[in-house]
Design a protein around this nucleic acid. Structure first.
Length: 286
DNA sequence: AGGGCAACCTGGGGGC
DNA sequence: TGCCCCCAGGTTGCCC
């Protein structure tokens, strides 16, 4: 569920409350929530207790907690993950996976995740130039919100690939942060069919597409993200309201806001693509 | 090397 | 009620 705008809403909520807080206790309630931390739950707990959070950062759909040394705690929401800041005496959520208790604070941090595709792991800062990014996230490309994001360079990389443009938008090693919702919305805005081969587009068209991705995601961020149900909420449990801003995603059969023809849904990579067959012309086949 | 697909999970909704 | 199938904001690993 959560793509860049939703993860950024969560990150900013965490970063508003957590810097300066010291972890007093860590509870691992489901082992899958830390499956990428290979050293296991005891090591996970031992290495966190006593640490003070310095900042909460993000690249693409990953966020991470920085401490005062090179240790980093990475989090990914997967399809259904939530970070919630709640009073300690709040009843446990059904899918509560991790609990963080802080020194001298009546609020605790909870990681709740119905489908368990998300999780947390401990890592160290990598050596990538001056940017403090966890070593295990080195393969994650810059996202369109990053000040160093270079649309022209990314466009050249996209054009060099011999596959459909939507696959590439979803490839987090080329451009990060875009998922199924914002891929469909960006393609709709740029009037490009999702199955169009990237190599048939011009650099100018690809740069325009990347710009549409940045714009639609910043509009979504301003609206608090897209929430179809209560699986996506901010750290206070509130939904975002960008669903009303979506033109194509999840709108099969509804009129295209631009031309009025019905939005199509098509199976794609075990999921789906939504587009306007009139505004986004299908590539020739065969 | 790069492309394509199944697997990892839980739960909601629709059809019968 | 119940069962079965399909669907869902993502990533990974394995095959070719």
């Amino acid at each position: 569920m959560p793509e860049l705008p939703e993860v950024e809403v969560v990150r900013s909520g965490l970063d508003r409350y957590l810097p300066g807080r010291r972890i007093a206790q860590v509870f691992v309630l489901h082992p899958r929530a830390i499956r990428k931390h290979l050293a296991g739950p005891i090591d996970f707990q031992n290495r966190l207790v006593g640490r003070e959070i310095a900042a909460v950062r993000r690249r693409g759909k990953y966020l991470w907690f920085e401490f005062e040394d090179d240790q980093i705690l990475i989090g990914h929401l997967g399809m259904s993950g939530q970070f919630l800041l709640v009073p300690k005496d709040t009843e446990d959520e059904k899918h509560l996976r991790l609990r963080f208790v802080f020194s001298d604070w009546s609020t605790e941090l909870r990681f709740v995740d119905q489908r368990t595709f998300g999780g947390m792991s401990l890592d160290e800062i990598g050596d990538e130039q001056d940017t403090k990014i966890p070593a295990s996230l080195a393969h994650i490309a810059l996202d369109p919100f990053h000040p160093d994001f270079q649309a022209a360079a990314v466009a050249r990389r996209l054009r060099a690939r011999k596959t459909e443009i939507k696959r590439l938008l979803l490839d987090q090693s080329l451009v990060s942060g875009i998922g199924n919702i914002y891929a469909d919305e960006s393609l709709w805005r740029a009037k490009i069919h999702p199955r169009r081969l990237a190599s048939t587009l011009t650099i100018r068209q690809l740069m325009h597409l990347l710009e549409q991705a940045r714009v639609v995601m910043s509009e979504a961020l301003a609206a608090g993200g897209t929430s179809f149900d209560d699986l996506y909420v901010n750290v206070n449990g509130e939904s975002g309201y960008f669903e009303r801003g979506l033109a194509a995603y999840g709108r099969r059969g509804e009129p295209c806001p631009r031309c009025g023809r019905a939005i199509q849904r098509e199976a794609f990579m075990n999921r789906s693509s939504h587009f306007c067959a009139s505004c986004q012309r299908a590539p020739r086949t065969g």
